[in-house]
Amino acid sequence: MKILVLILYTFRELLSRATLVVLAGISTLVIALTMLSISMSESSEGVTLQMFGNPISPPLPADAVGEFVRTSQVGLSKGLFIGIIFLGVFATAGIVPATLRKGTIDLYLSKPLGRWELLLGKCLGAIAVMFVNVLYFIGAIWLTYGVKVGVWNSGFLFSSFSITFVFACLYSLIAFLAVLSRGSPIPIIGAFLYLFVIGGLLESREQVLYLISENTLYRSLIDGLYYVMPQISAMQAGITNQIMETSINWKPFVQSILSAGLFFGVGVAVLSRRDF
């Protein structure tokens, strides 16, 4: 009940920020362009997809249209993913620090509200906002392709859940860094550093990080770190499979939810011990 109140007001807090409006605006623009421009023409050679009347595909046999649509949906989902990560991180990284500010945290914690409950409510609020945005984008694109091209790709629709899931895993890291640093710069830097440098290094640790030393302790530390962190790019590959409706490797998802639980748990522990 109180968690719902927290989620609702976090929603409101985010709506008052420009970053989220930009994200929603870009989504709307892409949706509108897709809706207006996509069309289909049939000829004796097959089906041709068009954008603003210009063909964007060769004439396709009827059974290849689905494949073509799915591939373009993968492209759109990758674009959305980058948008969500970039603008989403900027928009939401400040949520937890704002809650922990001197003078504000006193108000929250004087209520019959556990510290874990407060952190959970705030995180779920940020994640819920992202979910709405993702669902809005994916849902509208899915509908457009369904109505205009006749391809109803349920994998694409369900990818809105997995994209939000990836964001949630990343957010556990952001919230953890926010609790530690009580500001938003470190969570933002940490998230991007992980996404673009550390995550990649860990993924290809056998080719890169292993070369630094042959020390087994060092190598098991690197391995340990790899398994503790969320598996962003492996999950992204899973999302591509989901949209292409090919088989998905769920292992990275399971591993990442454990990682998210760990970061959240440590975050709560740190928060609980603190004096305000």
Partner: peptide, 9 residues
């Protein structure tokens, strides 16, 4: 509770 120097959202 009314904290000193409280700050509402």
């Amino acid at each position: 509770y009314l904290p000193e120097n409280h700050r509402f959202p």
